[in-house]
Design a protein around this nucleic acid. Structure first.
Lengths: 237, 237
DNA sequence: CGACTGCTTGAGTCTGCTCAATAAAGGTGG
DNA sequence: CCACCTTTATTGAGCAGACTCAAGCAGTCG
């Protein structure tokens, strides 16, 4: 898990980071390359496989009939997309930019996990993490202001994909558009833009131009912004 | 899973509903009775056991330093509380009213699952359902209006705990307070009260007085309300 | 080098918030 | 059994955070 985001990836790219049994998945899967915005799977589709991200970023989303969209997760290299034991996917998924994945059929997976019991355990861990992540974000969406959500998001991204810099600074690549960030945080894209601008004005971050990420300039300040109080929607105090 | 909500429960109560391997858990667990608002586990505590709800309702929640609270799940009889493979709980949990649970140590669980491989599978299914539920609710909190969230919530409760009535009507017991519902839906309790009142005015539901649930009077109308459009926060169109 | 897409910024507005006061239940103890 | 206190639900008034709409500005790509 956890890699520098978008690296040129050869056909059999190795994901860096702590070795988990998932590395073995690459051997039984099929590589697929995705163009920007190309769909990987649709909500409600019959779930006969899942995908391991090799490069790029994948967005998992739910949509309503009238066009509203909620991104339920961003998947980075090493992450598993479309993991479920049900028979239908709970969310759709599409590539943010160019991306590549390794697709594993449930049937192949079952076979492999007979030989490698550790895989079952790791699957449990992966699902567990997904639960924790989703529940953490329920807190964001239900009880935090736009600024707080942004701060939480940036710190999460920093911890997952941040590139270390001098004296605690981190460059955080954000491959997704501000519209996508809004759909992830339950905000309008304009609100994302304004909140980012304000964090930059406050000296917490620096925005990379043209927009491609941020540099964390004052992590402490960002962390206090995560919980500064004020009130999610509506009114005064 | 799925039972009539609050029944007088004897020490070794049997949960109704489709037999799952979890019934076996009751044999290796310890019964515990909880008073209203009594805490079952704390967020961040060392996770050495989980709990199966026997009777009553349990709320799983996260809280910020400044007192904001987000309920991440309601647990009804048959549900598993505090299920994780990590070593710390991701949320706290407390009883809504009187409740009883069966507490299973991870060590006992491991032992039992060696004998009963089906348990491992069911655990996966349980976690998978938790993921799906949390992600569904991300959509509610991120992209739905107060009325829509309420409609979604009532229909979810109806499907889990609803008591069938004549011609499609269902009595839906709601053991939690409106404040709890608000903390579940990311709303103020006043907003819950107002949204319920409006649904009742529209003829979709009938509110049981004193507040203890609702009767679904027009399910079709509730279902269209789930997605009626309009816009989550803020402004006009 | 246009046409697009994505980001920024401004103006105005609505949803859901806070604060506040009242009413209705529930629990407790005399 | 009733008075009292606490907790929960209702309803009103007013406010503000985040929305929509709209215009303007880069960058990017064909």
């Amino acid at each position: 898990m956890r890699v520098a985001a978008t690296l040129p990836v050869t056909d059999r790219a190795r994901i860096e980071g702590p070795d988990d049994a998932f590395d073995r998945l690459d051997a039984i899967g099929v590589i697929r390359h995705l163009a920007p915005h190309e769909s990987l799977l649709l909500e409600g589709d019959c779930a006969d496989r899942f995908h391991r991200v090799l490069s790029g970023t994948i967005a998992g989303y739910k949509a309503t009939a009238d066009g509203r969209r909620q991104i339920v997760a961003f998947f980075f290299p090493g992450d598993l997309v479309g993991l479920t034991v049900g028979d239908h996917y709970g969310y759709g998924a599409e590539a943010i930019g160019r991306a590549s994945v390794c697709s594993i059929l449930h049937t192949s997976m079952r076979e492999l996990s007979r030989q490698t019991p550790a895989l079952r355990e790791d699957l449990l861990v992966a699902l567990d993490r997904e639960v924790a992540a989703a529940q953490e974000r329920l807190m964001w969406l239900g009880r935090k202001t736009a600024r707080e959500r942004l701060a939480c998001f940036l710190l999460e991204c920093a911890d997952r994909n941040g590139l270390p810099g001098k004296d605690g600074r981190k460059t955080v690549p954000l491959p997704m558009s501000q519209l996508d960030i809004g759909d992830y945080l339950g905000l309008a894209s304009e609100t994302v833009s304004r909140a980012l601008a304000q964090l930059a004005r406050d000296g917490a971050i620096e925005i990379l131009r043209p927009f491609a990420g941020v540099v964390i300039r004052d992590r402490r300040r960002l962390e206090t912004t995560m919980d500064e109080g004020a009130h999610p929607n509506g009114a005064g105090m």
